[in-house]
Nucleic acid binder design. Structure first.
Length: 604
RNA sequence: GCCCCUGUAGCAUAAUGGACAAUGCGACGGACUUCUAAUCCGAAGAGUGCAAGUUCGAAUCUUGCCAGGGGCACCA
């Protein structure tokens, strides 16, 4: 926002150094920390260090020499329009902006761009984000929720940063575990399914866990029990075989039960405000897989060891690596059936050829790091230039205090149960605390706040760390939480509602020609950081960056709210300027919350 | 055996190689007839698993250990 001024000063510094025979290192600019007021700074450590290394004259220690240069440069620069004052301290040159000018530029930009404030320039690349890969026939638990939230927020960030973005989901709808669920339904529970999308989901978890328990060997089994268990196992395996052979009855059962899961999944996506563009099913990738294996064999990338062995790709060998790194990947079983790897290769080809994606992001947990490294390397050998732009966004597991979640053991925390609990808690709090939520909006606001708490708790941890799920922490409404940020938005809204909004709309230019308090300056600074936060979060594929930013912004607003009167300002001019500041803060909070997939309510 | 991730105040987390390691929870002391406190203000609390190294400067980079988790040919 002060690029012209920065450039002018850079030129002055360069000219000064040239005149004084100082070999200037590249200037890096950063904002000044711990500033009651703000500005940008650069340092001369590198320049001083280079001098010392070159053995140039004065044997002054680096920090002192850096300070010397800073002081000389400061004297040389003199005064610059837009810059209120400069200082040389500890080897840094600090430039403080003229506050009124800076404030005006920031606020006017926000209020001109509105929902587009912070949006990046359109980029010439199409990105696909693949996320939300739940298994059907089980249920959607809190671990799937972390994945879905991470993926959706990443997609929003990348999209807002300027990339054309496609959201893809890849449900796991086949395999032995799926068939176990179908078998259990068909054998023991046919026609007994409850009504209600989520009731049926919970019921599916229950019968699946029950079925795996029946199939599990136990201690002290009687011979009859062993016979029983083995015949159950044979039945479900036979069912899997029939499914592979497209048996009509098995397919009908499979589709029926799959549809229940998908109904629940769609409803959860609706709750999370996720709009998928592409649905890849594992069962469909399964069919595509076998063709690409032939292609890889024909191209000499894969080695066919059938019938004795499987089809493999000796990745290290093909890449000419001597050290063990990517190892060997099996891409087709010796009996000719597909593997996870077969399907991922087929899927990638489809992404590149049918959807023309330039960049492909996979949001999948960290256990599959090696798998994706192998897949990406095979894509490279295969000749896809996009292979270098495939990225596995790995993230840590959501575990329970008593250990890992397990659908098989029925030891899962379902997303919907946490969601319901969240809404219940907010409703209880609403009756206690907030008098100004209209009766007919309470339920909706409760959903927004409850989900806000849950979603933020998933985003406020860096993705490669595990989360031990504690419902009281996830649904906390105090401190560094979603509701804290939502509340800042609500407070900004309540000020604007009480003001005469027409005044605000009439003046489309802000004038901050009065002494700004440190709270106002801090708030303006936070608002101005938003575009950079978007770019950083998108470039690094890190939703956490945006989550942390949104909290800092809300924090600045809350402090401002307490310390600085708006409606009761000392003059009309100050009041108008502050109203514009509040409007800009509200807008930036709303933009941030949107990127975090959190609703921004008007009241709470 | 090889590879990957993690290790920061009591707990949970943060920190483009840079200025005093930053927040929240908890505990402590204050502030609601106010733009209604899901908030704010104040004070306490760690020198970043250990040991070397690189650097003017390291929580961050390198190496080696220690601890926890994960992965390594026909599971997904």
């Amino acid at each position: 926002m002060f690029q012209r001024e920065q450039q002018l000063i850079e030129e002055k510094i360069q000219a000064f150094c040239q005149a004084n025979d100082i070999e200037l290192a590249e200037l890096k600019w950063q904002s000044i920390p711990f500033s009651g007021e703000w500005g940008i700074s650069t340092s001369f450590f590198q320049t001083a260090a280079n001098e010392a290394r070159a053995g140039k004259g004065n044997k002054v220690p680096v920090p002192q020499r850096a300070q010397q240069i800073a002081e000389q440069v400061k004297a040389e620069i003199g005064s610059v329009p837009g810059i209120s004052h400069t200082e040389a301290v500890k080897g840094y040159l600090n430039l403080y902006f003229t506050t009124s000018e800076y404030a005006r530029r920031v606020i006017d930009e926000v209020l001109t761009s509105r929902a587009d404030f912070g949006r990046g320039a359109p980029k010439d690349e199409r990105v696909m984000v693949e996320f939300a890969q739940p298994n059907t026939h089980h249920s959607f638990h809190i671990g799937h929720a972390r994945n879905t939230i991470l993926g959706e927020v990443l997609a929003r960030l990348v999209e807002f940063a300027g990339f054309e973005t496609i959201r893809a989901t890849y449900p796991g709808d086949m395999g032995l575990s799926v068939m176990t669920a179908v078998w259990a339904y068909d054998k023991f529970y046919k026609g007994q399914e409850p009504d209600g999308v989520h009731e049926r989901g919970r019921w599916q978890v229950k019968i699946y866990a029950e079925a795996t328990a029946k199939l599990e060997p136990k201690e002290n089994e009687t011979p009859e029990e062993i016979v029983q268990r083995e015949s159950y196992d044979a039945e479900r395996r036979e069912m899997l075989r029939m499914w592979e052979a497209d048996d009509p009855y098995v397919h009908e059962m499979w589709l029926l039960t799959r549809e229940w899961s998908l109904n629940e999944f769609r409803d959860i996506l609706r709750l999370l405000d996720v709009k998928m563009d592409v649905w890849f099913f594992e069962s469909e990738a399964n069919k595509l897989g076998k063709e690409i294996v032939d292609e890889l064999i024909a191209k000499g990338i894969a080695d066919d060891e059938r019938p004795e062995g499987p089809v493999i790709v000796k990745i290290d060998e093909k890449l000419g690596l001597t050290k063990e790194r990517y190892r060997t990947m099996v891409i087709l079983r010796s009996d000719g059936t597909s593997l996870y790897s077969t399907k991922d290769l087929a899927l990638a080809k489809q992404k590149f050829e049918q959807y023309h994606v330039d960049r492909s992001i996979y949001v999948v947990d960290f256990r599959q790091s090696l798998h994706f490294q192998q897949v990406f390397k095979i894509l490279e050998l295969w000749g896809f230039p996009q292979a270098s732009k495939c990225y596995h966004l790995s993230y840590g597991y959501v575990t329970l205090p008593e250990g890992a979640m397990s659908s098989r053991k029925g030891r899962v925390i379902l997303f919907k149960d946490v969601y319901d609990e969240a809404v219940k808690r907010v409703l209880a709090l609403e009756t206690e605390r907030s008098g100004n939520v209209p009766e007919n909006e309470r339920a909706q606001i409760a959903e927004q706040i409850g989900l806000g708490a849950l979603v933020y708790s998933m985003l406020a941890v860096d993705n490669n760390k595990d989360i031990v799920f504690d419902i009281n922490e996830a649904l906390s409404f105090d401190g560094r939480t979603g509701p804290y940020i939502q509340n800042a938005h609500v407070r900004a809204n309540s000020i604007l509602k009480k003001a005469d909004v027409r005044t605000l709309e009439r003046s489309n230019i802000s004038t901050f020609n009065f002494e700004l308090s440190k709270h106002e300056i801090e708030l303006i600074e936070q608002i101005s950081r938003f575009p950079n936060a978007v770019q950083q979060a998108a470039n690094e594929y890190r939703p956490l960056v945006m989550a942390a930013y949104a909290y800092d912004l809300a924090n600045a607003f809350h402090s401002f709210y307490h310390a600085v009167p708006v409606l009761q300002s000392e003059s009309e001019e100050v009041r108008n300027a502050r109203l514009r500041l509040v409007a800009a803060a509200k807008q930036t909070l709303a933009n941030s919350l949107h990127l975090l997939d959190i609703q921004a309510p008007e009241v709470m």
